[in-house]
Write a protein that binds this DNA or RNA. Structure first.
Lengths: 121, 121
DNA sequence: TTCTATCGACTACGTATGTAATCGTCAAGC
DNA sequence: GCTTGACGATTACATACGTAGTCGATAGAA
């Protein structure tokens, strides 16, 4: 476990976190807009399986792929890494940065506010 | 511009964002705990200069290195990428993840709260 | 003036990543 | 039965990254 998932691989994982299990064909079909060839998608699936991020079950002559890692856990780990690296572990500066660049919608702010209210007591 | 800065390179940039300009020796000295050889630090400095993240001025036979990119800008870009990739651009889930894993101190929460208060119209 | 320590430049090399082609095998259709 | 199309496995190859050694030039010490 705990192997990193690259950016291209992440897109493949997204498909399978959304719907699984799927065949390589199906995954590729759902990545239509990515511009990747089927071969590329297969390579990414293999690598993800090799690093334990995907589980495979045989279905006749092919595999069905399904996530073997929890999206939330991976996302949390990656978030943690970034916040540590960029902001010394403090998340507020990250939010401040996004805010400064007008990247936060009113809905985002409301969502954060609600979250903070929950966290406070 | 806009070349990515890798994780090892980031550590070098941190030194120079903190104090600059510095010679390669000085940078290496300040990265003492990294375990890198001087040669490694020099390689990282060269790569950073090549990708335009560092500016060099000649000082006799050696260079003085100084950041050529703004830390806040780079951090904002990286944050943006991560939040887009992991959370569809919404920062609240990121904060929620950190919170769930008990990664937020009371001070962090207070800081976020103050920030949100400011952001609200 | 000669030696030496140091500088940046160049080279090295293993692993990761993005992107894909090819190959051997087998199931299904004819 | 034979062919063909689809599988996963293997191989390919350029770029990036982490980590470092070597080399030619030169400034300074002796």
């Amino acid at each position: 476990m705990s192997e990193r998932i690259s950016e291209a691989e992440w897109q493949v994982m997204e498909v399978l976190w959304h719907t699984s299990p799927l065949t390589a064909q199906d995954v590729a079909a759902r990545l239509d807009d990515s511009g990747w060839s089927l071969a590329t998608v297969k390579t990414l699936l293999s690598r993800l399986a090799a690093k334990g991020a995907l589980a495979t079950t045989e279905d006749g002559r092919r595999y069905l792929y399904a996530p073997a890692v929890d999206r939330a856990a991976v996302a949390a780990g990656e978030s943690r890494r970034l916040v540590d690296r960029l902001f010394g572990g403090r998340p507020a500066p990250l939010v401040a940065h996004l805010a400064e660049r007008g990247e936060l919608s009113a809905a985002d702010i409301a969502e954060l506010e609600a979250l903070i209210r929950e966290l406070k007591p």
